[in-house]
Simulated assay, not measured.
Amino acid sequence: MSAPVRVLLADDQHLVRSGFRLILSVEDDVEVVGEAVDGADAVRQARALRPDVVLMDVQMPGTDGVEATRQVVAEGLAKVVMLTTFDRDDYLFDALAAGASGFLLKNADPDRLVEAVRAVAGGHALLAPEVTLRVIERMTRTAPEDRSPSPEPAGLRLLTDRELEVLLLLAEGLSNAEIAGRLVVGEATVKTHVSACLAKLGLRDRVQAVVWVHQHGLLRPGEDPG
């Protein structure tokens, strides 16, 4: 039997941490190894405990979740899943750029929390469509209407037409199954294309792919990826 996924909870609200601990404690393959009350505490405990995954609240006093994520990822201490209520989302894109492997809404179902922990621990990224759309909306609001086209990003010409099509659909927040349905291909084929895109562009995961597409202005709301 493989070792359980070691999880560090980082949230300034005791009730939230207790709730997450309760949800995760009933899973045989998940172990909560610590609780942090703010970002600085999360970094300290990540260094000491070396968890597999940190469930990190975005908004915390002192060192917030974005800066804590940046430090945890930069030091290779753990994968990070950001937790947000969307009460305030100005940190969202920065947290993605800081290296978070996924985002989860605090009002998500308990099963979704467990799924997120397992997925990120297994090396996958988790980016809910709601979060992707929020990133797109925010970037559109902050981008000038008359912005000049950006130079073609390095690596773009390495992609085939189909790979680029898959990449743009991924950046819209579609799952592999939804992309497969849109393109009328098998889901395994989509996975192959996604992997090829990440490898050719030097991106870590789907989260970075979404950031990369919108950083380079390749897709804006209302555009047809085709």
Rank of each mutant, 00 (worst) to 15 (best):
V5M: 01
Q13N: 06
Q13W: 01
H14M: 14
S18E: 14
R21G: 00
S25T: 07
V26R: 14
V26W: 01
E27S: 14
D29G: 11
V30L: 11
E35D: 11
D38M: 02
G39D: 06
G39S: 12
G39T: 07
D41F: 08
R44H: 03
R44K: 13
A48R: 10
A48E: 14
R50T: 07
V54S: 01
L55A: 06
L55S: 11
P61N: 06
P61A: 09
T63V: 15
D64H: 02
D64W: 00
A68C: 03
T69H: 02
R70P: 08
V72A: 05
A74Y: 06
L77Y: 08
V80E: 13
M82L: 15
M82F: 06
T85S: 13
R88W: 07
D89H: 15
D89P: 01
D90S: 08
L92Q: 05
F93L: 14
F93N: 12
D94Q: 11
D94A: 11
A95E: 06
L96I: 10
G99W: 07
G99V: 08
S101W: 10
S101G: 08
S101N: 02
G102R: 04
F103N: 03
L104E: 12
L104I: 11
P110S: 05
P110M: 04
R112I: 10
V114T: 04
R118N: 08
V120E: 10
A121D: 02
L127V: 15
E130G: 01
E130D: 14
L133K: 14
V135M: 05
M139K: 13
M139L: 15
M139S: 12
T140G: 01
T142Y: 09
T142N: 04
R147K: 04
S148Q: 10
S150P: 01
E152R: 12
E152C: 06
L158D: 14
L159I: 04
T160W: 09
R162H: 01
L164S: 12
L164M: 11
L168T: 02
L170Q: 11
E172H: 07
G173C: 07
L174R: 05
S175A: 11
S175H: 05
A177E: 15
A177I: 13
I179C: 12
I179T: 12
G181Q: 11
L183C: 09
V184H: 12
T189S: 12
K191G: 03
K191Y: 10
T192H: 03
C197N: 06
L198P: 03
L201D: 10
G202D: 07
L203V: 04
L203Y: 00
D205F: 04
D205Y: 01
V207S: 15
Q208W: 06
V210H: 09
V210D: 05
V213C: 13
V213A: 15
V213R: 07
G217A: 00
L218G: 11
L219T: 02
G222W: 14
E223L: 02
